[in-house]
């Protein structure tokens, strides 16, 4: 009995220790951010690696998610003779939920895992130690631009996901299923609010971008410097950031739309 309790206690302590280390790590990285302003090129390169290279998967998934929404929404709404509301359904579900969440999940898989593997390998091949030897702070030189780059790229990716998705829904709803063109847009414009819906979606994607890149760079930096350790760290990045995104999404939805 006591042994069980001890195991649980040790497990809890390890979790808390990791959380604490992650927060300290974040503070140190944030302290390195002002120095980045002198070298914007480093950040630019990371926006390219995390953002531009994720563009294809984001746009293609956005298009298909929008098209599926159009198809499924139409089949349900047509029973009530309310297929003109298809635009509202597609736009609200994309802008409020699916855009930020799916984009963040894809971002974690596509860019987060790459960040972890990259930093982990740098650690394993002692590049980070070599930098410290040369009095270059690896947190400021390597980690900070990656954090900032992911933080910039993610909201833009989510916005593109939603916009492409709306046009995917438009294509299926208006183009293939014959929903009235003007009703699709006018109902959407009447019901979607800039502040309440679009801004809240953007806030969500900013938070997700921050959390996913934070987890990715921390897992990489904290990885056991062996090939097995890096593979575990990469897995943990994807699992933890997906869970964090879904959990935070519920909390933020409850705060924004829950009416508390």
């Amino acid at each position: 009995m006591i042994n069980r309790l001890q195991t649980l206690g040790r497990w809890g302590l390890i979790r808390f220790e990791r959380l604490g280390r992650g927060s300290m790590f974040l503070m140190q990285v944030l302290a390195g951010l002002p120095a980045l302003l002198l070298r914007p090129r480093l950040t630019l390169q990371q926006v390219y690696a995390t953002g531009v290279l994720s563009l294809v998967i984001i746009i293609v998934s956005g298009l298909f998610v929008g098209m599926v929404l159009g198809l499924q929404g139409y089949n349900t709404l047509v029973d009530f003779g309310a297929e003109e509301s298809l635009g509202v359904l597609v736009a609200l579900s994309l802008v409020r939920e699916l855009g930020p969440v799916i984009a963040a999940l894809l971002f974690a898989g596509r860019a987060g895992s790459a960040l972890t593997a990259e930093i982990g390998l740098m650690k394993a091949t002692e590049q980070l130690s070599a930098m410290e030897m040369m009095a270059v702070d690896p947190l400021a030189r390597v980690v900070a631009p990656r954090l900032l780059g992911g933080f910039i790229a993610m909201p833009l990716l989510a916005a593109m996901f939603s916009a492409v998705g709306v046009f995917g829904g438009y294509f299926v709803g208006v183009g293939l299923l014959g929903v009235d063109d003007g009703s699709f847009w006018s109902q959407m414009q009447a019901k979607v609010n800039l502040q309440e819906d679009i801004m809240n979606g953007v806030i969500k994607s900013v938070v997700f971008g921050f959390v996913v890149t934070w987890i990715a760079v921390f897992e990489g930096y904290d990885a056991v410097p062996t090939s097995e350790g890096i593979s575990r760290a990469t897995t943990r990045t994807v699992v933890n950031s997906s869970l964090a995104v879904l959990g935070l999404d519920f909390v933020m939805t409850a705060l924004m739309f829950g009416g508390f």
Binding site: V95, A163, V164, W185, I198
Partner: peptide, 13 residues
């Protein structure tokens, strides 16, 4: 990305 936000603001809302 900014263009997508603009589309969302103008066309969707």
């Amino acid at each position: 990305g900014l263009g997508a936000l603009f589309v969302l603001a103008m066309k969707v809302s």
